[in-house]
Design a protein around this nucleic acid. Structure first.
Lengths: 110, 110
DNA sequence: TATATCACTCATTTTTTTGTGAGTAACTCA
DNA sequence: TGAGTTACTCACAAAAAAATGAGTGATATA
């Protein structure tokens, strides 16, 4: 959780207003978010699939997915099978960030 | 500082190997780095100029600059005037990331 | 009845990141 | 002599992010 009225929070707000880069980075810089977005874009779009692919606990995975959903990069469809099944999809915003992530990957090894 | 032999550190290493996106994000996701890179690219390339432009202490600014230098996004030239003057420049790698940062800024408001 | 699966949430601890307080060297100007 | 400038560094505190332990509901299978 982010507290208000600390200079940390004030700085974050300043940057959010002054610099759109920071707003963008806040949405994608979570530790597992890059890989999650790539996997979903490739069809690995279930909670349990992602859990197999990433050395990460349910709890951490769940949190990253919640945040991606809150920022509207992904959406989910609950299919009431037994046990329940949930499919994740990229939104338009999510799809639009994939080429930028690929550009970042290329850039890293420059 | 990053400690070794914690699962936190292990996960970071895993991601560094498996996903170049994370390596890239580690270099640019520091709170002030986006703006610092943009300012330097526009010629606001001194410590004291950056300090005026950003609501940030010497210490934090210094640390972000040290990290950007360690990752080879910027380099510096010490000019032995009195008092000493230091100019920062973008390296080729630093120049190459600017269009990606601009794409991120555009993407944010999608 | 007991165990298992899927897809989670909540509370707490650990680790990292960001910010603060204090201090440095070299030299100039009053 | 004392204050001011630039460009820092170090030690420590505060805040945020990531990881861990425990538990949930619905159903199905043994």
């Amino acid at each position: 959780m982010i507290k208000e009225n600390t200079s940390n929070a004030a700085n974050r707000q300043f940057l959010y207003k002054v610099c759109r880069i920071n707003g963008a980075l806040d949405m994608i810089a979570g530790r597992w978010k890059g890989l999650i977005l790539i996997h979903i874009s490739e069809g690995q779009n279930r909670f349990s699939l992602l859990k197999q692919l990433l050395p990460v606990s349910d709890q951490v995975l769940g949190k990253q997915l919640r945040e991606l959903e809150a920022d509207k990069l992904i959406s989910k469809t609950v299919i009431p099978e037994v046990p329940v099944r949930v499919d994740y999809q990229l939104t338009e915003k999510g799809k639009a960030v994939i080429p930028i992530l690929e550009a970042l990957a290329e850039w890293r090894d420059l």
